[in-house]
Structure formats: structure tokens, C-alpha cells
Amino acid sequence: MEAFTTHTGRAVPLRRSNVDTDQIIPAHWLKKVTRDGFEDGLFEAWRKDPEFVLNRPERQGATVLVAGPDFGTGSSREHAVWALQNYGFKAVISSRFADIFRGNSLKNGLLTVVLPQPVVDGLWALTEADAELAVTVDLVARKVTAGQGERRVEAPFELDENARWRLLEGLDDISLTLRHEDDIAAYEGGRPAFKPRTLAG
């Protein structure tokens, strides 16, 4: 996984709540057997509308998605995270993420930042008024900053220390777990005999 420390980029304000993973990447894209090539499927249905925010010329190259509450609900498809990353997004900001999507994002180095809805409202107002405005998502300092003067947004965010450490270092979960293989083997030694097995013998 690529490490995430701090990122500055232009934003896409997405004024929608309950953006489910079927919207992020429709099911027919899920037949691919690789982790790349999903960028054209991102928000596929909405992108048919030339006025959809992602299609606006001034939003091209933006890397921070500012979305409404309950982002990433529904299917567990990790393809939703890959699609956002393949498209070029480095961070997503919302007041609430679905659990599985959040877990998937942090395992792939896509930083999902939870901010209170009034702060998201502030970011929407700022980035809708100025498409060139840079938003900084700083995982080291754990804060999001954007704009200047009276309308400046500077908001701290929470992320559990372990997840933050893994992101900052770009660590692979499996390698970390395999450091504790002795614990796994010891646990397996004590599992009850009545637990089912899928294979005979």
C-alpha cells in the first residue's frame, strides 16, 4: 500500500447523501479480475449527464471528493475504492461513511476523513465558489485546511492511532498479522472439535 502523509489538491463537491457503492461503481464493472481500469465506471450513471460535477471542465484533475453523509453504503465491493483511486482521488471527506467502505479505503491508502456536516457544508460552499481552491488533507497533523480569511476552513479530524500509523507507513496488514503466527497456531490448537470443516479428513 502507498503511504499517505499529507495531500493537497482541488476538490469535487458532491452534494448527495447515501451515495451507495452501486453508484460509485455499477455491478457490471465487477466482472473484471484486476484492481485497475475502473476509472471509467466511477459514478457511471451520473456521468452521462454533462452537468454532473465530475464532468465539469473546471473539476478535471481534482483529487479530493467532498461528499454528503452515508457515503459508501451497500455492497462490500472494494472495487468502489479502486474506482475512486483509479480516477485519481486521494481522499474523500464526508460526515459519515459506511463501515465496510471505510475499512476498504484505509486498506488501500484512500484516506476517508470524517468531518462534522457543518464543516462539510463550509467546504462545499468554498469549493463550489472556487474550483481552483486547494484543500489540504494532512494526516500527520490530522486536520483539513482550505481557503483563507473569514471563510477559511481548518478542521481537525479523528482517526484511530493504529489505522493512522499503518497509513503513514504504508504497511501491509497481512505481513503485520503474520508476525503473530505463533498466536494464531496456539489459538487453532484450542478450537473445539465440534466446529465444522468444509473438507473431509
Partner: peptide, 21 residues
């Protein structure tokens, strides 16, 4: 019983465990 992403599928295949918050 809970749904997991593909990175976690790989993790379970390799280790039969999952780190869970």
C-alpha cells in the same frame, strides 16, 4: 458474521484471521 472487502478476503485466506476494530 460480516461482509468484508477483497483486501480482507486475501487476509483471511492467508492468515484465517482479521484485525478488527
Amino acid at each position: 458474521a460480516f461482509g468484508i472487502g477483497t483486501s480482507q478476503v486475501e487476509h483471511v485466506l492467508a492468515t484465517q484471521t482479521l484485525p478488527m476494530a
